[in-house]
Nucleic acid binder design. Structure first.
Lengths: 188, 188
DNA sequence: ATGATATTTTGACATAGGTCAATGTATACG
DNA sequence: CGTATACATTGACCTATGTCAAAATATCAT
């Protein structure tokens, strides 16, 4: 089951099975329907999710009420409203499921207790933050240097799964264009 | 001198003076003139800088050859081309000085050796990455949800130093608008 | 100081992408 | 199954911001 998480940790840091089992024991299994709201704007985010199957996203609203998708997590990836999870400030993001999903969740309290108790877990977390930084940075660069068309084509090339698995509406909100614009881009 | 770094580390993690002195001993002092290029696109970034005085920025070029400023570091803050520093991949960013500056630099090798050797330093680094994440995320949100005018006004309100200390050209590149546009925004 | 070089401002115009509205097409649920 | 609700497409038009060029300042090096 949660083998994938174990595997992820193993490749990022040396760790024995005992500690690995301890870490994994804090994750709780949870099955949720499509379109389930896991966190609302204004709430403090006290859970981190590991997506075992399905799809979870985080998004926020513009002043005009449009959704902007920050992150989409498919199988075996981690998702939470990080800014809130880290700072304990109210989240400006929502978290919801885009498909029926199986999740493993860990509480913020347990998560940070593991950071203190298990050096390998802290190492893993540090690596994770580093990779997240790089990913964010690339996303910003793409947003700033490419046209809507180019961003769409880049996504097709680099992550065809997104285009295959997501609705136009979600894809548009992820690429930061209006749905109408995406629809037009596709037909050219 | 490097008291500020010590102070920063102390408030983020408990650490004794001995270790603090060891950390600090790896930083080398360096005085550089305005407009000095510290890193070029394509090079692997193997240094991290602590800005003691002056101003350092990182930027990249769009396909049309325009500069886009990612980060501006004034006194007492940390700057490097992180994606490259972390991954050892060639940097897509440049680093240069916007004012005559005094820097403390540490090599990537020493930096990561300290991460391994001194748990408090790793803790500090983790906190730093967390704060950096939150900062990046806010910047993206602002870029996506606000107009050029609103971004400019937000900057005036939240970080008037930027507006006071930077040229229009740099400020425009930081706000992700053309210089002409910024010039017009100001006169309204 | 003085010319050279870079920055800022202003103007006229172009355009990518947004907006609003209507129509067509899925898909979910009783 | 059928119909209600959400999603996707298309059209006509609009606007914020970019582009290019020229003039007005500021800044720098000798």
């Amino acid at each position: 089951m949660i083998e994938k998480l174990k595997y992820q940790i193993r490749i990022n840091t040396d760790i024995d099975e005992l500690k690995l089992d301890k870490i994994v024991s804090y994750f709780k299994y949870r099955k949720v329907k499509r379109s389930t709201l896991l966190l609302s704007e204004g709430e403090v985010c006290k859970e981190l999710y590991l997506v075992y199957s399905g799809c979870v996203r985080t998004y926020y609203l513009t002043q005009q009420g449009y959704e902007k998708t920050r992150h989409i997590a498919f199988d075996d990836s981690i998702v939470t409203s990080f800014s809130s999870f880290i700072s304990l400030q109210p989240s400006f993001e929502f978290i919801d499921t885009l498909e029926d999903s199986e999740l493993y969740s860990i509480s913020r309290k347990d998560f940070y207790q593991l950071v203190v108790d298990i050096p390998e877990w802290e190492r893993f977390y540090t690596r994770f933050l580093e990779m997240t930084y790089i990913h964010q940075n690339k996303k910003i660069e793409a947003r700033v240097t490419l046209t809507a068309k180019q961003r769409y084509e880049k996504l097709i090339t680099e992550h065809p799964v997104y285009v295959r698995r997501l609705s136009n509406k979600i894809l548009a909100s992820y690429l930061d264009v209006r749905e109408e614009t995406l629809s037009r881009l596709k037909s050219k």
